[in-house]
Amino acid sequence: MTKDSPTSIIKQAPMQIVKKYGIVIVLILMIVGLSIAEPAFLSSTNVFNVLTQSAIFGIMALGLTFVIISKGIDLSVGSVLAFSGVIAASLGQTMATTGKFFPHLAELPVIVPIMAALAVGAGCGAVSGFLVAKTRIPAFIATLGMMTVARGLALIYSGGKPVSTLIPSLTALGGKLFNVIPVPVIIYFVMIVISSVLLNKTRFGKNVYAIGANITAAEVSGVNVKKNLVLIYTYSGLLAGLAAIVFAGRVGSVHPGAASGYELTAIAATTIGGTSHSGGIGTIWGAFVGALVLSVMRNGLTLLGVDAYWQQVVEGLIIVMAVIIDMRKNAKRD
């Protein structure tokens, strides 16, 4: 009676295989198609390029995976990136900078701006989480508020100006290790592993699924729903803070208006990867694949010389299509 015996997979109609592995097949087709059309696509430089491009919103998508599995949403991650980014940058400027943010501050070890970004990010997330857990206002509203507040705070803190000329140890985080592997990709992969362990191997992860699948049942079963909600949004904020560090390293400065709209790209990546907005369903692997689909598409369309405006149209269509495929996959087989 098992539904997934090996023979039954072979017997399954092609359409069902597409349904089951939908987005991975889409990704493979994209990669194959692009590498035929443009052999440069598969060069190691370009592959790392694609991964680096997906690292920043990919890291945020990891946090959003937790949030969306719990049937929530976090719209604030882009603004939180900017806010924690300007703070980190202000603590990581070189001595020679003119118009230095803290003129009398000695050059600090790189750990200081890193910890500051993580702390500010986690703090913002904790506030959102607290709002969701205690006041029971919809996550959409709580994080919309946090999105606006964090952006405002970033502008206030920086006086509306970018914070630049960062210390080399900070910009090194946007560079390459041994001149080959981009550091953002290393950070991204480490966070994929950590997030995956967190989601699959800890009590916290299991509770995230349970809360998203049936919040009442979770509470009745003794899950501390409020505490876990706070933790979920804190983790999302923490990853936004980490993304801020990668951003600062790569760009070499942080503008208070930075990363505007990144939250939507991250949500799109998570969604394309099969995480369900109805809660209870989703994987870290999916978020990674989803982020990859978006960045392969952007990279490929650029290589093919497709107009940047048209790229947006294609991106929108892919998001909607991915969700349609995914809903079919999850539809109950009657």
Binding site: K206, Y209, N214, A217, V220
Partner: peptide
């Protein structure tokens, strides 16, 4: 407490049998 309404306050429909069983004893 085995609740009255299985769907509303009992099961986690889309999750595995395993996690449905183990959630209270993780």
């Amino acid at each position: 407490w085995l609740t009255e309404d299985r769907r509303q306050s009992g099961i986690f429909p889309m999750l595995s049998v395993q996690i449905n069983m183990a959630i209270a004893t993780l």
